[in-house]
Amino acid sequence: MIPDRIIEQGTLTTDGEHAAVEVRIPWYRAIPASCISEVSLAVDGVPAPADSLTWTMNGETHPIAELAQRSDDWWFPLDSAVVTGALPVEPGGEHRVDVELKLYIPYIVIGDDEVLRIEEHDTKTMAASSAKEAVS
């Protein structure tokens, strides 16, 4: 619904082994973390291994695979989440960042026991800052 605003411009950080980027929900209402079905992150065309991906939201970090059990955590339209993956990105320079999100929208029923699932993708080009600088 709002795919061009998924990636927050200028938020790519790296520690040399992991890359992270802030993302926004491509929907106009909040959803529980359990409705975050799939997430992918790639930098310069190199995808992060799926088992290395983590999701930080509301001050807590979880592997993507654990989000299905997180019905008590909600992602709100005004809040950013952070996707981190094992990607050896060097600070500086321009990098192409791709994020794909697949989300269930639990309050829109489209069939017998089936809810709407949206699949959105965003690409941004930005410099990577050192994760150490971002913390300072």
Rank of each mutant, 00 (worst) to 15 (best):
M1V: 14
M1W: 11
I2Y: 12
G10C: 03
G10A: 09
T11E: 08
D15H: 02
G16T: 05
G16S: 11
E17F: 14
H18S: 11
A19E: 03
A19H: 05
V21H: 03
V21A: 04
E22T: 04
R24Y: 15
I25L: 15
I25Y: 04
W27E: 11
I31L: 14
S34T: 06
S34H: 10
S34E: 14
C35M: 14
S37C: 10
L41S: 00
A42W: 03
A42D: 02
V43I: 13
V43Q: 05
D44T: 01
P49G: 13
P49K: 15
A50W: 09
D51N: 15
L53P: 08
L53K: 06
T56H: 04
T56A: 15
E60L: 13
E60C: 05
T61I: 04
H62I: 09
Q69M: 13
Q69Y: 12
R70D: 14
S71N: 08
S71V: 00
D73K: 09
W74H: 10
F76L: 11
L78R: 09
S80H: 03
V83D: 03
T84V: 06
G85Q: 08
A86R: 12
E90I: 14
P91K: 00
P91H: 05
G93N: 04
E94T: 06
R96C: 03
V99S: 02
E100M: 07
L103S: 05
I105Q: 07
P106Q: 13
V109W: 07
E114D: 05
L116R: 10
R117I: 13
E119D: 12
E120N: 11
H121C: 06
M126K: 01
A127N: 09
A127F: 04
E133C: 02
S136T: 05
